[in-house]
């Protein structure tokens, strides 16, 4: 029975998940017994005392109160809920007391992806797209078509090390939830929230957004990858050298290739078609470079590098006539935006 109750739960994979599971088990036992007693008495009485067909009215006991019973059934639940409160609060204090020596990773939520920034500046983002067919919008539809779905970069964390997540959002409220770690915290714009965990198992787990944030809320997932510490350090160092390469000059072809990958990863393809004339939420981005577009204030503007740069950094500055001001500001570096612009230029 103990095992059955725990089997329902995601595998406990953080230092405090075990205690969480014990509290869950204890509460399950207590409420399980209460459930059997209460529902058992209810059903038993219904069967035992039900009126049979043709039975005449009978006199029933005039039993309207019993101080002894009433004190007892007030006192027992009181003691039980206070006990549960204490064991729950104890585990909660552990969950919310962040160790001083923790590795800090900055996590930013935005519609509809997570960005992770490591202390040495390495930046990773989640995504959600079907490799090879941007029109397939869900994991199921993508896999059904025999293609591979991507959740973008994983959140890589070291085994048995304390990790502190510094959490914020650049648009609406999101919530950072890793079921296996038994942690959840809201990412609130305008402020920082913190959470921590110490992974105790290697493997991949799931990161969910659990605060409703709009159209692609259910796609705002990520993969959490726990690796041994030495592997983590090696990975981080390698990524850091890769990040410094970002500054180096790329050829136009390389930039186009990089931009093509970025528009999927950064989620652009959720709202923009990269074929001419097709409307999703925002305007199609193919074949527009060098042309004039009409804005919603009646002005006209030439689509050039400066306009595209501005539109990605501050999307509501100029709105193309007939489209909603729906795009959130993007969490991209200038180099990344330049690559995206080169990609847009390449689309005729």
């Amino acid at each position: 029975m103990w095992q059955i109750m725990l089997a329902i739960l995601p595998e406990p994979a953080s230092s405090f998940a075990g205690e969480w599971d014990s509290v869950y088990s204890i509460v399950s036992w207590i409420t399980g017994i209460a459930f059997l007693l209460v529902e058992g008495a209810l059903i038993y009485f219904i069967f035992k005392y039900r009126r049979h067909k043709g039975e005449s009215d009978k006199e029933t006991p005039f039993f309207t109160h019993s101080t002894k019973m009433e004190i007892l059934w007030t006192a027992i639940p009181t003691v039980i809920v206070i006990f549960i409160f204490f064991i729950a609060a104890k585990n909660f204090v552990t969950i919310r007391t962040i160790p001083k020596d923790a590795l800090e990773i900055s996590v930013t939520g935005q519609k509809w992806q997570w960005t992770f920034v490591y202390p040495n500046g390495v930046k990773k983002t989640t995504a959600h797209y079907c490799e090879g067919d941007a029109n397939l919008k869900t994991l199921h539809d993508c896999e059904a078509a025999g293609k591979k779905w991507s959740w973008g970069d994983p959140l890589v964390v070291p085994l048995n090390k304390n990790v502190r997540i510094k959490l914020t959002s650049i648009d609406v409220i999101h919530s950072f939830f890793i079921p296996e770690f038994r942690v959840k915290q809201d990412a609130v714009p305008g402020t920082y929230n913190f959470l921590w965990f110490k992974p105790i198992k290697t493997g991949t787990f799931r990161l969910f957004c659990t605060e409703y944030c709009g159209d692609l809320h259910s796609q705002m997932l990520g993969v959490v990858k726990v690796v041994p510490e030495n592997e983590f350090n090696a990975w981080l160092a390698k990524e850091a050298s890769g990040a410094s390469e970002e500054g180096k000059e790329l050829s136009v072809e390389e930039l186009v290739e990089k931009g093509k990958g970025l528009v999927q990863k950064a989620g652009c393809t959720a709202c923009h078609a990269f074929v001419p004339g097709k409307r999703i939420v925002g305007p199609a981005l193919a074949g527009i470079f060098g042309k004039e577009v009409k804005l919603n204030n009646g002005q006209k503007v030439m689509v050039d590098e400066a306009y595209l740069m501005e539109s990605i950094k501050d999307p509501t500055a100029k709105i193309v006539a007939g489209f909603p001001p729906a795009m959130p500001p993007q969490n991209l570096s200038d180099n990344e935006i330049k690559a995206i612009i080169e990609y847009i230029k390449s689309l005729k």
């Binding site: 969480w20 809920v81 549960i84 609060a89 909660f92 038994r182 959840k184």
Partner: peptide, 16 residues
């Protein structure tokens, strides 16, 4: 089941 949700550590995971 409300008792599970009132248990503050359990609610961290079960919330939303």
């Amino acid at each position: 089941t409300g008792i599970f949700l009132a248990s503050i550590n359990l609610d961290v995971s079960l919330h939303d």
